[in-house]
Design a protein around this nucleic acid. Sequence first.
RNA 1: GCCGUGUUAGCUUAGCUGGUGGAGCGGCGGACUGUUAAUCCGCAGGUCGCAGGUUCAAACCCUGCACACGGCGCCA
Length: 443
Amino acid sequence: MAKDVWVSDVHDGTFDGQEIELKGWVHRTRGSNKIWFLVLRDSTGIVQCVIKRNDVGDECFENLKSALIEASVTITGKVNVDERAPGGHEMVVTGGQIIGAVNADNPFPITESAMEGAEGGETEFLLDNRHLYLRTNRMTTMLKIRSSVFGAIHSYFRDLDFIEYHAPNFVAGAVEGGSTLFEVPYFGRKAYLTQSWQLYAEAAMPALERLYTIAPSFRAEKSRTRRHLTEFWHAEMEIAWGGNADVMEHGESLVRNIASTLLDERSDELQSLGRDLDLVARYADTPYPRIRYDEAIETLQGMGVDIEWGQDLDYSKEKILTQDFDVPHFLTHYPRIAKPFYHRPDPDDPKYVLCHDLLAPEGYGEIIGGGERTWSEKEILERIDEEGTPRDAYEFYIDVRRYGGVPHGGFGLGVDRVCSWLAGADHIREVIPFPRDSRRVTP
RNA sequence: GCCGUGUUAGCUUAGCUGGUGGAGCGGCGGACUGUUAAUCCGCAGGUCGCAGGUUCAAACCCUGCACACGGCGCCA
């Protein structure tokens, strides 16, 4: 019963001249009442099936002709090499049946015209019918790329003997500013959905030393941009005995590794999306420069941008700064006053903290935020107090420093943003099957 | 939270200075023995987002509301 022959095998030439059975869905149909072309789709691609009335008989011909778009069918036939067929191979049908019909009263709603509106964004209709839109070529391609990105992240860390480690998704407090937490009822108390794995990872850092995860993070931001989701996939890592530069090295290697994995595994998919492979190759091969915050401010001021030292760099500034970048750039050493308490002040100049953001080119924005953690008990208490945050909310975090604190650090990478950037997507929603934003939780 | 744009058939849309809403795709029927988003002929399918108002007359003008999309702030 299980399927063992795929459309891709037909185009590979594996079954040339042989009679096989294919299982899949009707992609498109066309033809006359003597010869009918049924384009069959499965997860590996599409193949043209040629149905001739004289070959299969009236009953089978009429039956297969009645299969509407997205009906599921099994088709038996002989694999034929024919240059008239898209892809060079086709099935000369000897028989077949409809497994799951589509009723003419309610045809498949995702039509060519529905997808015309998808360029440069997605229509309300396509978002409402996301469960069906998943079957289209563009979405399938995005999901395959996404799978390779996730695989590349796991491989990168596992090859370096990192331990995959899991933090809870229900949490009691915030990592950063409390306004962006989703509150959930929790048996008469309040709990929140996690924004980051980091605090829990720091707790395990003395146990595992090298750890990573890929997990969802939740932020209740009413952001309406092509870079934001309320539920996004967060790849995070934490290392003991490492500083800002070590963490940055990992961030750069990981991102370059993801780009080269996509070139190996998904170059056809990238090309079908119109992505320039040379661009992706550059992201895989070229080192990512480091720029200090002060240099960035000077550069921006030199360009006539109205910005003062001490301000955080918002997207409008990032955009100007990155417009001339041809690879991602790290921005390091932000002013202490612009960053939360867990960033360690630079011992060489405590006005700054040992942190970094990785900014993607082409306007895709920040893809990594990370740095060295404030790791001594004395410093963490100072930093918490100077922020005016109550200490008791962070008792367990302080304990990590109280019992054998060591230098350590880590980063968080927005996996969906990386997918969006490397695939050249128009919107982050394009790379996740069921996107969640401030206005949509369905389907 | 702020700013902007939009809502007409299942979908994508046209609809001028207000005068009984058109097309393409999809569906149905028919023609065609090699189509490539097939083509050709025909048919069905509309409370013009909702509620008020102006007018002899509103898809069109006015007011309010709802929803959506885009951008900004915030961030991965």
